[in-house]
Design a protein around this nucleic acid. Sequence first.
RNA 1: GGGGGCGUAGCUCAGUUGGUUAGAGUGACGGCCUGUCACGCCGUAGGUCGCGGGUUCGAGCCCCGUCGCUCCCGCCA
Length: 601
Amino acid sequence: MHAYRTHTCGELRKKDVGTRARLSGWVNRRRDHGGLIFIDLRDHYGITQCVVEPDSPAFATVDKARSEWVLTFTGHIEARTEDTINPDMPTGEIELRIDEASVQGTASDLPVPVFGDLEYPEETRLKYRFLDLRREKLHKNIILRSKIISSVRRRMIDQGFMEYQTPILTASSPEGARDFLVPSRLHPGKFYALPQAPQQFKQLLMVAGFDRYFQIAPCFRDEDARADRSPGEFYQLDIEMSFVTQDDVFAAVEPVLHGVFEEFAEGRKVSPAPFVRIPYEESMLKYGVDKPDLRNPLIIADVGSVFDREDVAFKAFKNKTVRAVPAPGAASQPRSWYDKLEAWAKTEQGAAGLGYIVFEDKDGVLTGKGPIAKFLPPEAQAELAKIVGLKAGDAVFFSANAKKDRAAALAGQVRIKLGRDLGLIDDSKFEFCWIVDFPMYEWNEDEKKIDFSHNPFSMPQFDREKFLALDPADQDTILGIKAFQYDIVCNGIELSSGAIRNHDPDVMLKAFEIAGYKREETEVKFAGMLNAFRYGAPPHGGTAPGIDRMVMLLAGVDNLREIILFPMNQRAEDLMMNAPSEATLKQLRELHIRVVKPEKE
RNA sequence: GGGGGCGUAGCUCAGUUGGUUAGAGUGACGGCCUGUCACGCCGUAGGUCGCGGGUUCGAGCCCCGUCGCUCCCGCCA
């Protein structure tokens, strides 16, 4: 007989009755009836009830066992009597009658109990992560993560992609997030950087002729955390393809994402491929964000024209961008509901206010009520109702601002809040869409200059010769240029960002020049890539869906720590391993590093 | 860097207008219990009320500061 087990704790069934079996696992739960002791023994695969009576030679050992001790039990599998069968357990028809027991490991009092699903403080859970990981929910989430990643790999390989590894110790990337730096021992004063993404490497792979690349790639960015953004490190399904148009990339990625989501949806609906494509500008108008949650049925409308009518005298909205968010059925809400929303808009969104009109049926005529309704004569109210699509019993909220972007953004936040507060979001669905035609550049108000709005490596949607001839002073034209740049969004979460890349060195130099980088500067910063593009570069493009966010969506959790094995806390500390920690003097000396701590005030 | 929320037993939480010895449930430990599966019953231990200062005859409660956790903004090509 094997030293530790003949079966796992999840596999014994009625057909095994009479078998002599050996099980090893943790004490999930102990029930002591004086003479009779039940132990639920748990391993990765399941739980099996084991029972011992005082006449067994194993009784003394079992009697002293406590929660989470690791034990090995040997005995015969017996059928449970009709009235003691537990239909809630896969192994509930049988039990193991213990006649040999040995202790493989004892356990101290538990700071986090494994049995049960009581909430525990995040700090304790992180410090004792190995205990937390034994708990049913987290254990299940991590298994789900593994299965999702396997499925992704299989689907990518089936589509002719190959997985390649790219360096972890590499060069600092000149754009984007803050880098993690690694000091070089051999080169005093010089540093490697951890990759923010394998962006340049995957493009170089295309230049090297590998055609269809993917990698479950670790990415490192030294930026502050959020609930859906790990501090420091995360994983992307990094993808790049040669000789492709935007549509080819979509056609390659859609079946993978759709397939994976269908596979793990467990009854939830997944929007069919091809996914809806929404131009950036349309998304900003209708949803007020570039990552719309399409489960939310509300559509924002531009109603500036209504407030600019000569018969409308509401000065606060004149000559401004005014966006309207419908609130179907909200007429029945009490005044306090509207007051609360306005307070939310002012405090949390920094809005000047949040105007609204409630529409009711008055003798067959749709009539507006509320603080600003009186500024709109019946004709203007009718026009408003028509544009927004309002009926009696609905309300409408207004977001007005001299700056178009600000008006759109507040409307977007109002739309999200109304969708939630009015219970309009069906959480049994996964709604995918592509956001396309992102602007290539944007105006940086602080520095009064033109910036890349997203990925500086994207190909502009502009005639090559005309692009090369652009005068940086021609701001209107430049700010109107779109890029072959696209995002995948699911349920209001940005899953990935991608682009058809700029593989033309002249266009690239020009693109950076427009964003304020001198040609010589670009030549130095992107020497590797520019140089490669001068030796025959294929047109190429790709994208990089976030693995962690995919798993979050499929696991139905709203925090990354529920789907990552050993996460750091919000301050980027690993409480279990004590990272970061100080280096020894010897280590620092070898690295030619001297620590200068910030002065405390 | 900024803003919000939270901080009372290992854990989840209660604690009245500032007033006697700070409670409950759960977990731990001990006892009883031969069919439980959130077993049951009885008992015991367990507290710097995050920390420091202040107001007061008296502070878990009020004030100031500070620390920790968390969520958000900035940031994340």
